[in-house]
Amino acid sequence: MSAPSIAENAAAVGGPVIAAPQEKRPGRPGRTVGLAAIYVLLVALVVVFLGPIVFIVLNSFKQKFSISSDPFAVPVGDMWAGFSNYITGLTKQNFLEAIGWSFFITVASVGVIVFFCAMMAYYITRIKTWWTTALYYLLVFSMVIPFQMVMFPTVKLADMLSLSNPLGMVVLYLGFGAGLSVFIFSGFVKSIPLEIEEAAYIDGCSPVQTYFQVVFPILKPVSITVAILNAMWVWNDYLLPYLVIGLSTRFKTIPVVVQQFVGSNGNRDMGTMMAMLVLAVIPIVIFYLFAQKHIIEGVVAGSVKG
């Protein structure tokens, strides 16, 4: 709501307009200057928010010595390294495989989380007994607890149960993701009128049919929210995959490879590092471009509930 239009509305309803002088008249000059100032500010913020990404993209095409000598220059002439940094990054560090494992673990975990957590939320919301209530509060409790509390026993337990592989990671993510996901789903299930399910029962549906044919389709919008929140978390998660599968050489996710390559050695190859950072960002940007609206809505919905 901008000030001049308040004044205009106030004038329209015949109210006394006792605002600051330049607000009294919806006059052009002050308003235009104010607008221009806001736009300048907004564009400056674009530079701030995109700057670091532009920085890594520019440097990923530079020779490694130019990165330290001219970090903010555009890669032209001698500095230009073409795609050599990308080729080194993709081949030497098994980065391609890491992308594959990140994809597999994220997609499988999100699918499993949405499928099973929605079912559980439905059951514990509709069936009220002491143990479903207890389960609900335990799940809510788990959202608050920092990972450091459980990390050691979880890793050892996963080892004992042969879960130290990508499929096992899906099981662990289901366990860790259950808190937030069941919480969000339950809030939504509560708002579904019982009459809809009763009608399905009267039409001869079994509880399982009722759930899959009637309730689950209604849960679609909230499923998208849950899927997005979990995808962002699983894709970027570092500590759990590092501790459970990252120590073996076979299964590594993107954050684990980035940390091991960049974090471990002092005389690191800056060019390859920049290329790897860009490669890690690209899938996220693509995902964001396609699902931008859902992501922002999902994040707002998730935060208000959580």
Partner: peptide
């Protein structure tokens, strides 16, 4: 309830 509960037990509750 069982699938999520089992995963929750392994990943969080028991640990």
């Amino acid at each position: 309830v069982l699938p999520t509960s089992a995963a929750f037990l392994i990943a969080f509750l028991a640990p």
